[in-house]
């Protein structure tokens, strides 16, 4: 019963996420509203970690499987993608490197600086 209860809570939050998506005119998916709601519920203690933890961890563990149908979907969007293949390939490969380096190094720079500050204070 524990897992069923946990799953029901997770689905209920997903549903409230859908309701928010319906009510708010932003291009934000139900899942992101749900994620924020779940975080807020845990933060405020409305929901205890033990009420969702195991089922949540299981769903996260099998998450890669959920992307397979989207990946296979490339099969049917292939004909629309084909004329743009070269620019898409270049942009995708270059962007992934530039974004990771920019995001990672900006964060790392600040983290290291703050760690140094802390050491000085200690």
């Amino acid at each position: 019963m524990k897992y069923i209860k946990q799953f029901i809570l997770i689905l209920a939050i997903s549903f409230v996420g859908e309701v928010l998506k319906f009510l708010l005119p932003l291009p934000v998916p139900a899942s992101i509203y749900g994620m924020v709601l779940m975080f807020a519920a845990l933060l405020t203690g409305v929901l205890k970690l033990e009420q969702v933890r195991e089922t949540g961890k299981f769903l996260i563990e099998i998450m890669p499987l959920m992307f397979i149908p989207a990946g296979v979907g490339l099969m049917s969007s292939w004909s629309t993608l084909k004329p743009l293949l070269i620019p898409v390939a270049v942009i995708t490969v270059v962007t992934i490197v530039t974004v990771m380096v920019a995001s990672g190094h900006v964060a790392q720079f600040i983290l290291k600086r703050e760690e140094k500050k802390e050491k000085k204070h200690a």
Binding site: L11, S14, M35, M38, V52, M66
Partner: peptide, 21 residues
């Protein structure tokens, strides 16, 4: 196969759990 994709919304909602931890 879309039954697999169906789990994406609840799984994404659950990403808040490790975040809270």
């Amino acid at each position: 196969a879309h039954y697999l994709s169906w789990f994406l919304t609840p799984a994404t909602v659950c990403l808040a759990i490790p975040l809270y931890e």
